[in-house]
Design a binder for these strands. Structure first.
Length: 955
RNA sequence: GCGGCAUUGGCGUAAUUGGUAGCCGCGCCAGACUUAGGAUCUGGUGACGAUAGUCGUGUAGGUUCGAGUCCUAUAUGCCGCACCA
């Protein structure tokens, strides 16, 4: 019986769909388990073979958990809002709604062919109003909240108002944009608009003039994680710094909680480390420096309080607000010129060109410990956004300060004994202090602590923790995103009432972004808010007293993906993001799979978002994703032919890869990408190649054996005429002709082979090239396995069959629990081959085998499972078959013919006293009943004895 | 510069976590069946050696009865952060 995978896979996919096999209920006595894939952007290119890697792994795990008796939530949806979808729409000149719809359809078709156990009833799309209703709702909650540093929690803004009414800003320890000082009387005397302005300083979702990453080509601002080395991550366009009035989320308020939370979750070390870097906590001190001759002081941040005796100058960031107060009349012109120059420089120039630049302000500050006057400079090596935008410079022990001091001829005072600072600074935090007054003789570490204590006691400064993490810019001057539920009255934003959500994305005459920063929603006619009648109206009515303009920006891509995992729990709930019952039952994602490229974007934002939702009582767990696995990328494997371009070249002769280093060809060949479907096992299909493109129609070859068609025009068996292609690992891309479409693999080998092969390729978490060369081996295994089901009988399983089966169960169970799916495939192959050698025909064994295979190759397993028991109804699925337990009893069973082995070895433990001599141990071993049974009369080749521990016997 | 991860046959990898390195697959070699094979099946395949055997997990040390696995250096590669004070 042939392995007709097409028929088998179509049949069961239909049965599963018809019976709703994968539908999941929120009401179950079973324990819940939530397995989630990062939902995809439905891009125009469709899925390539790399996308399903993580999906297959999570599918295996979900199916396994389900068979173990869990109620498994395993949903799928689409991250349809945001830049990629919109860029694709612009490229194809269609409305993003239409392209998104088409792309989703395509994705679902492709996913459907691979046999995933998704509950499609729970599908979410971020661009669906029923979904973005809750994105907008969450924004409103953040707008209506502030963050208290004492409780480290979000609180309703009404509590803050109450505090301001009674105490002003006195005793307020909250996250804020800038420090404010108000009395209660001042607050109470304020107008409504003034009050709103004050509150904006504290809201978690706030509007402020901020320095943003503006990308002209994309026509929008970008978050920090969307920019890399001064270029936009998407598209690679230049990004400049601009001050714009933008919405932001106060993510930085949660920095400490985001950091602490990492200790409680099961993520890879590298990913946690990436997040720790991104949050960038550093412990240090803030110190006051007085301005000489004026009643003005400013604050700096340092992690090296111990080096304060070595401060020989100060530096301000060009954007620092202190600058204007410090510049003297004589220096004003020089400073202005420098500031103009700094402003002209793009972010990219600043990063690539690190020459020392700066200008003297004319003013001096007083070192609070030495009381000496030190000059104040401005330089762009000091960043306005970190710390206070002002530093104390210690050239002896900081390489940047050192370079600056050398350039401007400023003094360098070494503070650590034995440190040679004549050529470079001594940055290490080790050694014994000198030239440092009360710190002399201390180790650096102790000196840091001592100085912190000293400055706190004397009031010069205070201990302070700083974070690198910035607030997330939340506005995008784009069309294809969630509209803000916000309208403007007297220039201040107000929320649209919750009951009026969702605020739907309006139709516009032109959705393309502009280079001026004018958002496309400005083109919408129906885009004003009638405050009295609570509805969206024509913006021509804005002259009315009760009609106000709506926000024109939309939310960024990460808005929709920040809480979607909660929505899957309760996707049809129109009254809440997620119902209490649902979230109480599912709680959090137990296993999350996706790429590590989201480490500093989505995975920070959704953790932040979840913590906020926790604070307001919506989410149940502090961390959204308990365990996270990053699947590796699948790269493409490109193939090449080598065109001869040496002397007398016609441009039509191609040299086999094995010959290109021959002296007659070396350096005279040009590699050309060739479509990988024309190549199998690195051998070129010559006919197909000649028909591939017109330019290769008359291609001639120097074959692997060095012959050409002219040498032997009619001989030439296929082996002689082989043309070998070269190869390289590259990104999967259309231009390299190396994209492998999963549909094609499913078509020629079947979904089960695809699933098995993707797992077989190597460990889940590492990147690896897609290499078709091995797929036949996996396909062959499934064929062989299938052929075993032809001759089933009701015979009792033999001991050997049971041992082989239970060995498999043990191995596969272990593998799945350790996400080592790649090592399960060999286990299946060994089991199959052993059973075949034993001539296994036992239905009982084959039945269980199908159950164990089910997570990996569900279609074939389902077919086999129904073959072993023909009375099973079609609706009864192997998905619900109980996961078998392995039994040590069977593993111990042994016969003359098949001794218990692992990799051809016998191993067990026997207790022996620690100092027993080796000969004695050997005697004990040989006399041991169990050992004798294992050895079965054979003589041991070698006995390795470790007193007190383990005995290894090699037969 | 700081941090994380990796390095095992011709290739992808395995070694149940400190217990005889190289499972399984690809490729290759040999054989069988075939008019034929890019089909199928069987056997072999780390290196050196005729054999016995010896040597082998990037390099150099260390801990241990025992190290691919732990420790210390070092090299190479990949990834993250980076003028973050």
């Amino acid at each position: 019986m042939e392995y007709n995978f097409r028929q088998i896979e179509q049949r069961w996919q239909k049965v599963w769909a018809d019976n709703g096999t994968y539908r999941v209920s929120n009401h179950s006595d079973k324990r819940p388990f939530y397995v989630l894939d990062m939902f995809p952007y439905p891009s125009g290119a469709g899925l390539h073979v790399g996308h399903p890697l993580g999906y297959i792994a999570s599918d295996i795990y979900s199916r396994y958990k389900r068979q173990c008796g869990f109620n498994v939530l395993h949903p799928m949806g689409f991250d349809a809002y945001g830049l990629p979808a919109e860029q694709y729409a612009i490229q194809t000149g269609q409305h993003p709604e239409k392209t998104t719809e088409q792309n989703i359809k395509r994705y679902k078709e492709q996913l459907g062919k691979i046999g995933f156990c998704y509950d499609w009833d729970r599908e979410v799309r971020t661009c669906d109003p029923r979904f973005y209703h809750w994105t907008q709702w969450a924004f409103e909650k953040m707008f209506d909240s502030y963050f208290c540093n004492q409780t480290q929690k979000a609180h309703p803004i009404s509590e803050l108002i109450a505090h301001l009414e009674q105490h002003g800003t006195d005793g307020l320890d909250v996250a804020q944009t800038e420090p404010l000082s108000l009395t209660a009387d001042e607050w109470n005397a304020m107008s409504e608009t003034q009050k709103q302005q004050v509150l904006m300083n504290y809201r978690i979702a706030y509007l402020a003039d901020t320095k943003v990453n503006w990308c002209e080509q994309l026509g929008t601002v970008l978050a920090n994680d969307e920019v890399s080395e001064g270029l936009s991550v998407r598209g690679g366009y230049p990004v400049e710094q601009r001050v714009m009035r933008q919405w932001s989320l106060r993510v930085s308020a949660y920095a400490q909680r985001l950091l602490d939370g990492l200790n409680d979750i099961d993520w890879s070390d590298s990913l946690k480390e990436t997040q720790r870097n991104w949050i960038g906590r550093s412990e240090g001190a803030e110190m006051q420096f007085r301005l000489a001759g004026k009643d003005l002081s400013f604050t700096i941040f340092t992690t090296r309080a111990d080096t304060v005796y070595g401060v020989t100058f100060m530096v301000l960031a060009p954007e620092s607000e202190y600058v204007s107060q410090v510049v003297t009349a004589e220096q004003r012109e020089a400073v202005d010129e420098y500031l103009r120059w700094v402003r002209r420089r793009t972010e990219r120039e600043r990063i690539s060109d690190r020459r020392v630049t700066g200008v003297f302000t004319g003013s001096y500050a007083i070192n609070p410990l030495t009381e000496k006057e030190i000059p104040i400079y401005i330089s762009d090596y000091v960043l306005a956004g970190y710390g206070t935008g002002a530093i104390m410079a210690v050239p002896a022990h900081d390489s940047r300060d050192y370079a600056f001091a050398k350039h401007f001829g400023l003094p360098i005072i070494p503070l650590i004994e034995g440190a040679d600072v004549s050529e470079q600074s001594f940055d290490a935090k080790e050694g014994v202090m000198m030239n440092s007054g009360l710190l002399n003789g201390m180790q650096v570490k102790d000196a840091i602590a001592a100085m912190k204590q000293h400055i706190a006691k004397t009031g010069i400064g205070r201990v302070k923790v700083n974070y690198r993490l910035r607030d997330a810019i939340y506005s995008r001057q784009r069309y294809w995103g969630e509209p803000f539920p916000v309208y403007y009255k007297d220039g201040m934003p107000y929320l649209i009432p919750e009951s009026c959500l969702p605020l739907r994305l309006p139709e516009v005459s032109d959705f393309k972004p502009t280079t001026t920063g004018q958002p496309p929603l400005g083109n919408a006619q129906l885009w004003a808010w009638d405050e009295k009648n609570l509805r969206v109206v024509d913006k021509a009515k804005i002259d009315d007293k009760q009609v106000f303009p709506l926000e024109l920006c939309t939310m960024p891509g990460f808005a929709g993906s920040s809480a979607y995992y909660l929505r899957y729990m309760d996707p049809h709930n129109d009254n809440a993001l997620v119902g209490k019952d649902a979230v109480d039952y599912w709680r959090q994602v137990d296993l999350y799979l996706g790429g590590s490229e989201h480490a500093t974007g989505h995975l920070i934002y959704s953790r932040f978002w979840n913590k906020f939702l926790c604070d307001i009582g919506v989410a149940r767990e502090q961390e959204p994703f308990r365990k996270l696995i990053n699947q590796g990328m699948i790269q493409g494997r490109s193939s090449f032919v080598y065109r001869y371009i040496g002397e007398g070249a016609t441009g039509n002769l191609y040299i086999s890869y094995n010959l290109i280093d021959n002296p007659e060809y070396k350096g005279k060949i040009q590699p050309i990408h060739v479509a990988i479907n024309l190549v199998k096992n690195d051998i070129l299909d010559i006919d197909a190649f000649r028909h591939w493109m017109p330019e290769f129609k008359d291609a001639e070859f120097v074959y692997a054996d060095g012959t050409t068609d002219i040498d032997n025009p009619y001989l030439g068996t296929p082996t002689e005429k082989q043309y070998i292609c070269g190869s390289a690992v590259e990104k999967m891309s259309k231009t390299y002709f190396n994209v492998v479409n999963p549909d094609d693999i499913v078509e020629s080998y079947g979904a089960d082979t695809l699933r098995l092969y993707e797992m077989f390729l190597g460990p889940l978490e590492i990147s690896k090239p897609w290499d078709v060369n091995g797929i036949d081996g996996v396909h062959r295994f499934l064929k062989k396995l299938w052929s075993m089901y032809e001759n089933m009988t009701d015979s009792e399983p033999t001991a050997d069959e049971l041992r082989s089966l239970h060995k498999l169960i043990k191995k596969v169970t272990w593998d799945i629990e350790h996400f080592s799916f790649n090592t399960s495939i060999p286990a299946f192959m060994i089991c199959q081959s052993e059973l075949q050698q034993l001539g296994c025909t036992s239905k009982q064994v084959l039945d269980t085998l199908a159950v164990v295979l089910a997570p990996f190759a569900p279609h074939l397993a389902e077919q086999m499972w129904h073959l072993t028991r023909t009375e099973r109804a079609e609706s009864e699925s192997v998905c619900d078959a109980k996961w078998p337990e392995w039994n040590e009893k069977y593993l111990e069973l042994t016969t003359q013919k098949y001794p218990v082995q692992f990799n051809g070895k016998v191993r067990f433990t026997i207790e022996v006293a620690k100092d027993t001599p080796r000969e004695e141990v050997e005697r004990i071993v040989m006399a041991d009943e169990q050992t004798v049974r294992y050895l079965n009369g054979a003589t041991a080749k070698k006995v390795i004895v470790v007193p007190g521990r383990i005995v290894n016997i090699v037969m």
